[in-house]
Simulated assay, not measured.
Amino acid sequence: MELWFTEKQTEDFGITMKIKETYVSEKTDFQDLAMVKTEEFGNMLLLDGMVMTTEKDEFVYHEMVAHPVLYTHPNPEQVLVVGGGDGGVIREVLKHPQVKKAVLVDIDGKVIEYSKKYLPSIAGGLEDPRVEVLVNDGFMHIHDHKNTYDVIMVDSTEPVGPAANLFTRGFYQGIYEALKEDGIFVAQTDNPWFKADLIQSVNKDVKEVFPIVRVYTANIPTYPSGLWTFTMGSKKYDPLEVDESAIPEIDTKYYTPRLHKAAFVLPKFVEDLIK
């Protein structure tokens, strides 16, 4: 008997993969969580029936959340990751020696617990002495920490359930206030094929708060449509003005110094969304 999982990405479209084993399937205090082993993508974390990360393609997302913003800021010493309990973004943040402290705030401790057990190649950095892990509400953490961080990264699920507040203008205003005077933030902002309205809404809200706003993309096979967007809001530094020759070569599989600015070159239909 074969077991297949389908993420219904719209009412009429989904992505399907063959499952070898189910490690965990439970309802936490916040969401339905499953950890499974797939034939094609290795171990995979699912939240509310949506693919969050897999062993095979996780590096794209985690590198592209972390490195463009950290190489845009000249001295990112204090970093906050909201969500991201799997630890992948933290792993990439730790590749930057300037970072003195990285704080991870995830509302669901079960995500952290099971990621450490079943996704050790992703979650290994959570034990690093530079990292503080808090099981808490990221929205409230930002509200309570004014003028604290150089860089804030929002590694959230889609805007449903506990992540709904992380896609609001009030949240972006809170991020602005939690950043230092030259701070930058970045958030995953879903895909332009099925969530065009969301990208437009986020772009409009962030532009009302931050003077510099840039959108960039990456290809992530297990995310809806494969084409994924990220939105960066900055008080001072423009990622398009970074000297690529000054970006060091680090241990990555997707991000490179040459890709830094190239990622901000958008297909025309995505450009049109955010005009």
Rank of each mutant, 00 (worst) to 15 (best):
25 S>G: 09
179 L>H: 07
49 G>Q: 11
139 F>V: 06
174 G>T: 00
73 H>T: 02
151 V>D: 05
8 K>V: 01
96 H>G: 04
61 Y>E: 03
42 G>V: 05
58 E>F: 09
187 A>G: 11
71 Y>F: 15
178 A>E: 05
81 V>L: 06
178 A>M: 06
121 S>E: 15
102 A>R: 05
100 K>Q: 15
185 F>L: 07
245 S>L: 00
177 E>F: 01
262 A>T: 12
129 P>T: 09
268 K>L: 10
11 E>A: 14
222 T>N: 09
187 A>M: 12
105 V>K: 02
52 M>D: 04
69 V>P: 05
85 G>Q: 05
92 E>C: 10
215 V>G: 00
134 L>R: 15
236 K>A: 06
213 V>P: 07
208 E>D: 14
53 T>A: 11
155 D>T: 08
45 L>I: 10
32 D>M: 09
152 I>W: 07
7 E>D: 12
257 P>W: 00
79 V>F: 04
12 D>P: 00
205 D>L: 03
268 K>T: 13
38 T>Q: 06
74 P>A: 08
46 L>F: 06
32 D>K: 13
198 L>K: 07
254 Y>D: 13
39 E>F: 12
261 K>P: 01
194 F>L: 13
123 A>I: 01
271 E>N: 10
248 P>S: 11
100 K>G: 12
160 V>R: 07
78 Q>E: 15
26 E>Y: 01
14 G>C: 11
